[in-house]
């Protein structure tokens, strides 16, 4: 090994480590401590071992919330990724309309999350909301505050409205990075539009799409504000996703022990799936 190794630059990372320790590692350690104890407040704790973990893992309430969470995340990914790619393909590549399209696409991303929830809540109300009245006027029996199907429909529509833009912008950036000669070569070969998409555009967008899937997965899996403002987890528990259930348990019932155990399980699931996506991304990077 002839290379000179100088690791002094690592000291420049110290402030970041201190900050992360303060806002992530120490709170996470505290959650682990809580997860093995019972507390009734007042700083008094009783050791319970792995009881809460077992309770959460075997609880139907947790299974149902986890299932709802996967259903929600899976559905929005299946809609937002293809829709985002389709919109990006339809957007102009040059000319004055580019900026117009980009600004229009960026708008939903600029709306604060609780405002998105409030907008959609009012928009979808069956008596006074534009969407609610229109759907009922068309003969649909639509009331998201009372019907499970309507609540899910509104929830998914809201997320698609809010976040498809992110996929569009990423896919568009990926498309713009494809050099013109690729298209020229495809034209010379007489390639169909589908062949161009399948063999040039899609492979070239692979990386940005993996990032898009990763970002949308993480964000939708930990989503709280928008469904909380829109439905509050209802009707009943129909739209109680993991984070809403967790907050109910931790702050509503003050069950800090079980809530801490649930947070850790929740965190481990997010960590594992994100690691799989990250690994796939790195593998693709290796290939090119």
């Amino acid at each position: 090994m002839d290379k000179t190794w100088n690791n002094k630059a690592w000291f420049l990372v110290v402030p970041v480590i201190v900050l992360v320790a303060f806002n992530a590692i120490i709170p996470l350690m505290t959650v682990v401590n809580y997860s093995v104890q019972e507390s009734f407040g007042g700083g008094v704790f009783f050791f319970e071992g792995t009881k809460w973990f077992q309770q959460i893992l075997t609880s139907e309430r947790f299974h149902a919330a986890l299932l709802r969470q996967f259903a929600f995340t899976g559905t929005i990914l299946l809609i937002e990724i293809p829709l985002g790619v389709a919109i990006a393909l339809a957007m102009p590549r040059r000319g004055p309309w580019v900026s117009v399209c980009l600004v229009l696409m960026a708008l939903p991303l600029l709306v604060p999350w609780h405002v998105v929830g409030a907008i959609w809540n009012i928009f979808a109300l069956p008596e006074i909301g534009l969407l609610g009245r229109a759907l009922n006027g068309l003969g649909f029996d639509y009331n998201f505050t009372r019907q499970v199907g309507s609540a899910w429909f509104t929830l998914i529509l809201m997320d698609v409205w809010h976040w498809t833009s992110l996929v569009v912008l990423l896919a568009y950036a990926g498309l713009m990075a494809i050099p013109e000669p690729y298209y020229q070569a495809a034209r010379i070969d007489g390639a169909s539009q589908w062949a161009v998409f399948r063999h040039i555009q899609l492979p070239k967008m692979n990386r940005v799409l993996t990032i898009a899937v990763l970002l949308r997965f993480m964000d939708s899996f930990i989503i709280y504000t928008e469904p909380f403002v829109l439905t509050g987890g209802g009707p009943g528990n129909a739209t109680t996703l993991l984070s809403i259930d967790l907050v109910k348990m931790a702050l509503g019932q003050f069950d800090v022990g079980p809530a801490a155990a649930m947070s850790i399980i929740y965190f481990l699931i997010v960590l594992a799936i994100s690691w799989v996506f990250y690994t796939l991304m790195m593998r693709n990077e290796d290939r090119w």
């Binding site: 350690m29 682990v32 401590n33 093995v36 104890q37 700083g43 050791f47 071992g49």
Partner: peptide, 15 residues
Amino acid sequence: LSWMAWTWQTAVFFA
């Protein structure tokens, strides 16, 4: 550090 509610079991784990 009492607010962190340490137990010896979790301390061993983190150690």
